[in-house]
Amino acid sequence: GLPELREEQQARSLLRQRYLRSLLAMRDAQVRFRMYERVHVEARFGASDIDVLNFQVSDLQTPIGVQKEALLRCPDMISYSLEL
């Protein structure tokens, strides 16, 4: 019914706002990415697209060298971490 819809909307809204805030706060931060196939990389975070499919990063440190500008695929990631 309507009350349940409102509850769902409010929950979704709170959760999404918090997530967007966390993404915005990541701008220019050093982020470590743990990816599939035991791949670990680190880069300076730039921005995310809104569907959380791509991360735009700079100075990506890969196992074989630095790529100045890169796009990382979120489906390739298991987790990412940073320090505030």
Binding site: A11, R12, L14, L15, R16, R18, Y19, S22, I50, D51, V52, C74, P75, M77, I78, S79, Y80, S81, L82, E83, L84
Partner: peptide, 27 residues
């Protein structure tokens, strides 16, 4: 901290003794 409703990613926070806050997001 939150679970993104679009990707279901979980944003975890750990407050360290050093005063730094460590954030881990599991997709």
């Amino acid at each position: 901290f939150t679970v993104d409703p679009v990707s279901a990613s979980v944003v975890l926070v750990n407050f360290q003794d050093t005063g730094r806050t460590c954030v881990t997001v599991v997709m």
